[in-house]
Design a protein around this nucleic acid. Structure first.
Length: 478
RNA sequence: GCCGAGGUGACAGAGUGGCUAAUGUGACCGCCUGCAGAGCGGUUUUUCGGGAGUUCGAAUCUUCCCCUCGGCACCA
């Protein structure tokens, strides 16, 4: 079965066939860094991270670019509000963003271009557009894209008619703009001296929002993309503007072969966004939930569906994920006592079956929900096998290797957690813990329950959970 | 106004023509246990917003109706 992808451009499921063989140029619109990123951003970048990882898993050579919009009216306004230098502000939030992505196990892009480092190229591109008579300069020093150049192609991505678009924009005519046609969009925006900006052939100013993505995506690919991604809110006007600009500039069609858009994250069914003020930053959510839980929460939903955020849904995700983590830790535990003998107990076949199911689901437009569903089945079966039979070392290793293979794609089993019982952190070494557990065992033998329980409580406070089982005591870090 | 998404068991959420619909949470039972928690095993929902139709057969296709939600140049 071939990999299928939903393409916003055609509104259809399509077989994924890149322009050239196994090479995939992928670009995902990055954040405007005027504040800490919120969970909605996490949703987008984690979703595309999984898509990227899966393509790699399937043998594609992925070149992944994701930008940082580090100059923009929002950045400047925010800086003004709090009396800070806009460039210092954007650098600070760029760092915050990168830190969040690392925490959530989002692989760093191959290239992470910043707008401020591409001003020359942006100006060149705008010049090219003017030369191609696809753009015009106004007396005020603004440059607009001339949409009459895209006659018949307006609404190509948003699937709206010109009338519909005009009507939609009717209520909010931007009077301060001096464009010829209501739907024209700005490529270069003149700015008063003293405001952040750059010199250009049209005077002091800044790039418009859309042009940067065209410039950077084309620069770091072969001029055409296989996949262009972003949040659904970017479909119009941002991504559509990119199509017009890029194609007018390069002459290559299509600018991007596949357009992929992730669904929103809502709170009480309302879109989480900065402008509505109903957002939680990634850092805020990290105070209450582990990175693994947050990532699992996102990956557990199909990337195009809306996810409604609440503490309950995150808690549920955490519990669900724990089931899988438990199997991993159970298998690891058994490995210690497993013999070399080749007692497979059907595990190898189970792994093969599950891998097949996983790939089938993921091939279907990255259906992570269904893919994870098959992992739960796998998990249950493995638990069942290891609790009733004694599989050999090789078979257990095979299971662990499979989990790690899955983790390469989904990134939901952070090593530090699944490995918790192996490592030492929070002040207590394994030795120490074993020592304490021996003390408690002694107390238990003497039926000194009070003492045993108090030791248990004490360990719990330090984040160590004791489980009295059939064959001895197990412990793990929370 | 224009465009779009969707209504599936207590909840969340897969499934888009065919064995009385995954999976997770919850609930219940059992195992384990000094107790507890955690863990493990099992059980639970004959049902897919409503009507009509197509079909040997539909949650899945067609049509009508009802309802919810999102986008429309700030936005992941």
């Amino acid at each position: 079965m071939a990999l299928k992808v939903y393409n916003t451009l055609t509104r259809d499921m399509e077989d994924f066939v890149p322009f050239q063989g196994k090479k995939v140029n992928m670009y995902v619109c990055g954040p405007t860094v005027y504040d800490h990123c919120h969970l909605g951003h996490a949703r987008s970048y984690v979703s595309f991270d999984v898509i990227r990882r899966y393509l790699i898993y399937r043998g594609y050579d992925v070149n992944y670019t994701s930008n940082i919009t580090d100059v923009d009216d929002k950045v400047i306004n925010r800086a003004k509000e709090i009396g800070e230098d806009p460039f210092i502000l954007s650098r600070k939030f760029t760092e915050s963003f990168i830190e969040d992505m690392e925490t959530l196990a989002v692989l760093p892009p191959d290239t992470r271009p910043k707008v401020t480092e591409h001003i020359t190229e942006i100006i060149q591109t705008v010049e090219t557009l003017i030369e191609n008579s696809a753009a015009y300069v106004t007396p005020k020093g603004n440059v607009y894209y001339d949409l009459t150049r895209s006659e018949g192609r307006i609404g190509i991505l948003s699937h709206q008619t010109v009338e519909g678009l005009l009507e939609g924009s009717g209520n909010r005519v931007e009077v301060e703009y001096d464009k010829r046609y209501q739907l024209d969009f700005v490529l270069w925006k003149s700015a008063p001296e003293g405001e952040p900006g750059w010199n250009s052939p049209w005077g002091w100013g800044r790039p418009g929002w859309h042009i940067e993505c065209s410039v950077m995506s084309m620069k770091y690919s072969s001029g055409q993309l296989d996949i262009h991604g972003g949040g659904m809110d970017l479909i119009f006007p941002h991504h559509e503007a990119e199509i017009h600009q890029s194609e007018s500039c390069s002459g290559k069609h299509p600018f991007s072969k596949y357009w992929m858009h992730n669904g929103f994250l809502t709170i009480d069914r309302e879109k989480m966004s900065k402008s509505l003020g109903n957002f939680f930053t990634i850092k805020e959510v990290l105070d209450k939930f582990s990175p693994g839980t947050i990532r699992f929460f996102i990956v557990y939903t199909h990337y195009r569906s809306t996810i409604d955020f609440s503490e309950e849904t995150l808690e549920e995700a955490g519990k669900a994920r724990k089931r899988l983590l438990n199997t991993i830790s159970n298998v690891k535990h058994d490995m210690k006592e497993a013999h070399e003998e080749r007692n497979d107990c059907g595990l190898t076949e189970l792994v093969t079956e599950t891998r097949e199911a996983f790939i089938n689901s993921m091939d279907d437009d990255f259906n992570t929900r269904e893919a994870i569903g098959s992992l739960f089945v796998f998990s249950r079966k493995v638990n069942s096998i290891i609790s009733s039979e004694k599989p050999g070392r090789g078979a257990l290793e095979n299971v662990l290797r499979f989990f790690s293979e899955i983790n390469d794609v989904l990134g939901i089993f952070a090593e530090d957690e699944s490995n918790a019982s192996e490592n030492m952190n929070n002040g207590l070494s394994e030795e120490n813990i074993m020592e304490i557990i021996r003390l408690r065992e002694k107390a238990r033998k003497e039926k000194d329950w009070a003492k045993a329980d108090s030791i248990r409580d004490e360990l719990k406070e330090k984040g160590i959970v004791i489980e009295d089982g059939k064959d001895g005591v197990r412990w793990k870090r929370m």
